[in-house]
Each structure stands twice: as structure tokens, then as C-alpha cells.
Amino acid sequence: MRITLTSVLVDDQDKALRFYTEVLGFVKRTEVPLGEHRWLTVVSPEAPDGVELVLEPDGHPAARPFKEALVADGIPYTSFTVADVHAETARLKALGVRFTQEPLEMGPVITAVFDDTCGNLLQIASAPAA
């Protein structure tokens, strides 16, 4: 058994695809029409055969209250790894991304939290030195 997918619940797949590719820098991996929505995944260009992130519609009635409660408390839905949190934060801010937590040094790890514009907060974290 292997983990090859993870997902994030988005309010609009087109908007999400734009944000996750044009702003975050991921690339589209799969797009398959599936009824009213699509099976839509992106991957990191640094790991094109790595874990796919499914941009999954949040249409279930329980999804939005859940997402809103997380956002109100500042809790990120998931976390991505970057080489330099400060540099990535500056890059994303220049693109107009809204941060709810500025870079925070916690021992060997630095984290920051921002809004994905699709109803979620996301965390970026630096990989601790090996």
C-alpha cells in the first residue's frame, strides 16, 4: 500500500487550478471530466512523479462549515515544504497572497500560513537540516 494522493477541498476548481499553478508554481498532472466536476490534480515540478494533490470540490454541505471553522482559528488545511520560508513568503506576497501567520522560527523549523483563496489556509515549512 502506498500514498500517492492527497487532497484539498476547494470552492472552485478553475480558480484553484489558477492559484495552485500560477501562484504556487505547481503543474497540472491530471484533468478528467467527472460529471459536474473534474478529477483534477497538480504535482510539484520538483517531484513530477511524486504525490499528486487533488483539487477536490467542497460541495458537500459539511465541507464549508468545517473549512470556515479552521480558517477562523488560523489552522492550515495542509502543509508544503519549501527550501526558504522567508524567500517564499516574500515571493507570494509580491503576488498578492494574504498571510495570516508571518514566518515563525520554531527551533530548526520555520513556518508561515497563508490563504489559498479557495477557502483554505495553507502552511509552508522549511525542511529541518539533515
Binding site: 482559528d73 488560523g74 489552522i75 492550515p76 495570516t100 501567520q101 520554531m106 527551533g107 513556518t111 500560513v113
Partner: peptide, 14 residues
């Protein structure tokens, strides 16, 4: 000006 998430993180780590 911190979220609950950041404050919880700081309490645990520091």
C-alpha cells in the same frame, strides 16, 4: 495580532 493556531504553536514550542 496572532491567530489561535499561531498562539497554540508558540505555547507548545516555547
Amino acid at each position: 495580532g496572532q491567530t489561535l493556531f499561531e498562539l497554540c504553536t508558540r505555547l507548545i514550542q516555547r
